[in-house]
Simulated scan of single mutants.
Amino acid sequence: MSTLPGRGHTSSSTPSLDGKGGTDSAAKVGKSTKRTGPSYVYYRLYTKLGAFESNRSLYNNDHFIGRIPSKLFPPPHTVASVRRTLCKLEGLSEPDKALVFAPLSSPAPKEDSARLSLHAPSGPGLSEQDPIALVVESEKRTKDVKQPEKLPECSDDTDIHYLYYRVYSAEGEGDEEKAKTSFDEGDVSLGRINTLFIAPPHTAGSLKACIAKVEGLVTPGHALYKDMELFEDMTSDTAMGDTDVICFQGHIYPGSDGGDPVALVNATANTAADQKAEPTQAKVLSEYPLDTAATNRALSDGSESKFTKRARLLSTFGYEKDKPTWLTINRDEVVYTDGIILTVTRPSNNQSGPGYMAINSKREKGFVWQWNVEFI
């Protein structure tokens, strides 16, 4: 039988001072093994298509890493209990369908009965560098969660592991299409994504789904998705299987070198009526991914008479440091958009991604991430 911290047998010839068979000194010795100060659970949120933002984010300029005090998790600390608590505190639906990966790099989700040590000195979920991953069916929130007014800034010297890729269309026209995450004006078809944005388990299938989401391509469940193939590098003769495991730990993995990216072939754009893009405006934005002034000028173009598509917002965030480019959003608020998918870079952290220009009830106009929008 294991001994709980601070509850081991202590022999002493000193008589009891509290009438309960123990001494003050023994009690102090027992308590000395406990952690001092508050403890937290760190985590990242995903759907099968990739990462989405936490409503309990740790940083003002990085909403993808969440943190919750350990004291908010009731015992026993099983995977099932932790999963339900995370979903409740994040306002996420269908907790019984969610999966927990601890650590994030695990090849398979944890069993519901497995226990997580939320008060240990170290381990999965106990530090920002070793978060657990919660993979849910949908990003849709069931309630608002108010963010603290002041959050610290994430350090700019964070070591980001990128995955580099190229996308080739199903038509095979040979045109050099600009990647939505293009970062090099001399090679616009080369894109890159943070490996932390790829949902676990880390396989060729989850990588393919993440690239498809970022690039506005058809995603799993679409009839044409099965035709897309992911190649380990530009010289590969055979595509990777969706279940092939990819380890993003360390510095060498498929796509780790911009000179030798993975290749997604037979890619088909998502041509749903509410997601058709007008290339002229999207092109203007993507040519200036790091030029805030030019981006703001591009965002101001276009007639508001085209903003006729109604959409519901799925999250609540202020984006104070990203104004006026970004729109402050409130969950369940109805906004109007022209349905044009744009790729914009956040000034506060240089993170790029797809989204829409939207106008709220106050006639305020700004950019909203694609994953925070649900057309109605």
Results as ranks from 00 to 15, higher is better:
residue 3 T to Q: 11
residue 6 G to P: 02
residue 7 R to E: 15
residue 8 G to Y: 12
residue 8 G to T: 00
residue 8 G to S: 15
residue 10 T to A: 14
residue 11 S to N: 14
residue 17 L to N: 15
residue 17 L to G: 10
residue 17 L to S: 15
residue 25 S to M: 03
residue 27 A to Q: 15
residue 28 K to T: 09
residue 29 V to D: 10
residue 38 P to T: 08
residue 38 P to C: 04
residue 39 S to I: 06
residue 43 Y to E: 01
residue 43 Y to Q: 10
residue 44 R to H: 11
residue 47 T to P: 03
residue 49 L to E: 12
residue 50 G to F: 04
residue 52 F to P: 11
residue 55 N to G: 10
residue 57 S to K: 09
residue 58 L to C: 10
residue 60 N to S: 10
residue 62 D to Q: 00
residue 64 F to P: 01
residue 64 F to M: 11
residue 69 P to R: 02
residue 70 S to P: 08
residue 76 P to F: 04
residue 76 P to Y: 05
residue 78 T to D: 01
residue 83 R to L: 01
residue 83 R to D: 09
residue 84 R to M: 00
residue 85 T to H: 05
residue 90 E to L: 07
residue 102 A to Y: 05
residue 109 P to C: 06
residue 111 E to L: 07
residue 114 A to L: 02
residue 115 R to G: 01
residue 119 H to L: 15
residue 121 P to L: 11
residue 121 P to N: 14
residue 124 P to T: 12
residue 124 P to Y: 14
residue 124 P to L: 06
residue 127 S to F: 08
residue 128 E to S: 11
residue 132 I to A: 10
residue 140 K to S: 08
residue 141 R to M: 09
residue 146 K to C: 11
residue 148 P to T: 12
residue 156 D to F: 10
residue 159 D to V: 09
residue 160 I to D: 08
residue 163 L to N: 10
residue 163 L to I: 14
residue 165 Y to I: 06
residue 171 E to Y: 06
residue 173 E to A: 11
residue 174 G to P: 12
residue 176 E to D: 07
residue 177 E to H: 15
residue 178 K to G: 10
residue 186 G to I: 02
residue 186 G to M: 00
residue 192 R to T: 01
residue 194 N to W: 14
residue 195 T to D: 02
residue 196 L to A: 08
residue 197 F to T: 07
residue 199 A to M: 11
residue 201 P to Q: 07
residue 203 T to P: 05
residue 207 L to G: 01
residue 212 A to L: 11
residue 215 E to I: 09
residue 216 G to P: 01
residue 225 Y to E: 06
residue 227 D to T: 11
residue 228 M to K: 09
residue 230 L to E: 12
residue 231 F to E: 11
residue 233 D to L: 07
residue 235 T to R: 12
residue 236 S to E: 10
residue 238 T to D: 02
residue 243 T to S: 15
residue 247 C to A: 07
residue 251 H to W: 12
residue 252 I to A: 13
residue 253 Y to R: 11
residue 254 P to R: 02
residue 255 G to E: 02
residue 255 G to Y: 04
residue 265 V to W: 15
residue 265 V to A: 04
residue 275 Q to W: 04
residue 278 E to F: 02
residue 287 E to H: 01
residue 288 Y to A: 08
residue 290 L to G: 06
residue 291 D to M: 04
residue 291 D to W: 03
residue 294 A to R: 00
residue 294 A to I: 00
residue 297 R to G: 03
residue 298 A to I: 00
residue 302 G to P: 07
residue 302 G to R: 11
residue 303 S to T: 09
residue 303 S to R: 05
residue 304 E to M: 01
residue 306 K to T: 08
residue 307 F to K: 13
residue 308 T to I: 08
residue 309 K to H: 06
residue 313 L to A: 07
residue 315 S to K: 07
residue 325 T to P: 04
residue 326 W to A: 05
residue 326 W to T: 00
residue 330 N to G: 04
residue 333 E to Q: 10
residue 335 V to L: 08
residue 335 V to H: 12
residue 342 L to E: 03
residue 343 T to G: 11
residue 345 T to W: 05
residue 354 P to W: 02
residue 354 P to D: 09
residue 354 P to C: 00
residue 358 A to D: 12
residue 364 E to R: 10
residue 371 W to E: 15
residue 372 N to W: 13
residue 372 N to S: 15
residue 375 F to E: 09
residue 375 F to S: 06
residue 375 F to G: 10
residue 376 I to T: 14
